[in-house]
């Protein structure tokens, strides 16, 4: 399995960050960055990283299942993450999430058949003072209202 030259360069650099023989340290970053390029943590990806870091596929699998941002199935082109944790909940996060469900016609961790949007009700994403907050892929949007959400989503159709 090969990656883009940019990602290969990033991996090459990453592997220099750790003490000799401890390159396994790169596993979580490699999974995150590769997932962005591949679209999901596929069995091929797990096998490839296992080989590169000299660990077993099971050891990779153990890690993948632990972290909530790593996913084995592809998500929509835009992954809509709406925080409903306390700070966001106090300022309408839950209502925003319900609105998104209706608007997108999908629920938690579901992806539209078209593959355009997927939705996830997420735990605190660290934007509590500017709640309710959402992330569209990696981009934060603060103080999101239902109208603002509609605008954002429509712009991405």
């Amino acid at each position: 399995m090969t990656f883009s030259p940019e990602l290969e360069a990033r991996f090459a650099d990453l592997l220099t960050h750790y003490p000799p023989g401890r390159q396994r340290g790169a596993l979580v970053p490699m999974l995150m960055y590769a997932q962005d390029e591949v679209g999901a943590v596929t069995p091929e990806l797990m096998a490839e990283l296992a080989k590169r870091l000299d660990v077993s596929v099971l050891q990779v699998d153990e890690v993948v299942g632990y972290y909530s941002m790593l996913h084995k199935k592809p998500q929509g082109k835009t992954h809509v993450q709406i925080c409903t944790n306390v700070a966001c909940m106090l300022r309408g996060g839950a209502e925003l999430y319900d609105h998104a469900c209706k608007k997108l016609g999908i629920g938690h961790k579901q992806t539209q058949a078209s593959g355009v949007f997927s939705l996830e009700e997420v735990e605190c994403i660290g934007a509590c003072s500017w709640a309710p907050a959402i992330q569209l892929n990696y981009t934060f949007h603060h103080e999101v209202t239902t109208d603002k959400l509609d605008q954002l989503l429509e712009g991405l159709q």
Partner: peptide, 19 residues
């Protein structure tokens, strides 16, 4: 090393070496 732990929290379980 044919057994590991997959998933997290209450969903955590033991998993075998080859899927």
């Amino acid at each position: 090393g044919a057994l590991g732990i997959v998933n997290r929290g209450v969903a955590a379980e033991i998993a075998p070496s080859h899927g």
